[in-house]
C-alpha cells in the first residue's frame, strides 16, 4: 500500500485547474444576457410610475408628432447606397440559448471526430450509437420549436449532447491506446 507521504506527494502534484471538454462561454454569455434582461424587467416593473396610463398616452402622442415631423422634413444627405464594408461574421455570442448549446457541442464534436484515428473493435457500432443520440437530440429540438427557451428542454438537450460527447471521447481514446 502507498504510504501517507507518497499519497501526500501525489496530492500536491494535482493540477489546480481542469479544462471542461467544451467551450462554456457561448452558453454562459446567453445566460448572462437573459439574467440582465430579467433584471431590467424587474427594474422596469418597480419604476413604472412614468409608464402608467395617463403618461403613456402623452408619450404616444409625442412620439407620433416627432415621427410625423421627421417623415415630412427629413432629407437624406446622401442617397448613394452604403457599401458593405465587411461580411457578416458568424458570431456565437449573438445566438439564442438552443443554438448556443448546439454550436458549442457540435464544435467540440467536430474536434473529437477530427482527432479520431482508429477505433477499438469494442466500439465497432459507434456510428449507430451516435445516430441514436442524434435522433434523441432531434426530438428535443423539435419540442423546443414549440416551446422555445423552455429551461427543462434546454437542460435535456445539454445532457444528451454531453452523453454523446462522453461516449465519443471513449471511442476516440480507444483508438489512441
Amino acid at each position: 500500500m502507498k504510504t501517507e507521504q507518497e499519497l501526500d506527494a501525489l496530492i500536491a502534484g494535482l493540477s489546480s485547474e481542469l479544462k471542461p471538454s467544451r467551450d462554456l462561454w457561448p452558453e454562459l454569455e446567453q445566460r448572462l444576457a437573459e439574467s440582465a434582461a430579467a433584471e431590467t424587467k424587474v427594474i422596469a416593473i418597480k419604476t413604472n410610475t412614468w409608464l402608467s396610463v395617463p403618461f403613456a398616452s402623452a408619450y404616444v402622442a409625442s412620439a407620433a408628432s416627432v415621427l410625423l415631423a421627421v417623415t415630412l422634413f427629413w432629407q437624406p444627405a446622401d442617397l448613394q447606397p452604403v457599401a458593405v464594408t465587411a461580411p457578416l461574421a458568424f458570431n456565437p455570442q449573438l445566438l439564442d440559448a438552443e443554438t448556443a448549446i448546439v454550436y458549442s457541442f457540435e464544435q467540440a464534436k467536430a474536434e473529437q471526430l477530427a482527432s479520431m484515428k482508429t477505433v477499438d473493435p469494442v466500439y465497432a457500432d459507434w456510428q449507430q450509437q451516435m445516430a441514436q443520440w442524434q435522433q434523441a437530440i432531434g426530438q428535443v429540438q423539435l419540442a423546443l420549436k414549440y416551446n422555445p427557451n423552455e429551461a427543462l428542454l434546454l437542460k435535456q438537450l445539454r445532457q444528451l449532447y454531453s452523453q454523446q460527447q462522453n461516449y465519443l471521447q471513449k471511442v476516440v481514446q480507444s483508438g489512441l491506446v
Partner: peptide
C-alpha cells in the same frame, strides 16, 4: 478563472455535465 472553478465543481460532483452546469451557474 474557469479552470479553477471547473476543477472544484468536477471534483465535488464527479460528473462532467453537472460540473459544466455548475461552473456556468457560478459565473452567472
Amino acid at each position: 478563472h474557469s479552470g479553477r472553478v471547473y476543477a472544484v465543481c468536477l471534483r465535488l460532483l464527479a460528473d462532467p455535465s453537472k460540473a459544466e452546469d455548475a461552473c456556468q451557474e457560478v459565473f452567472v
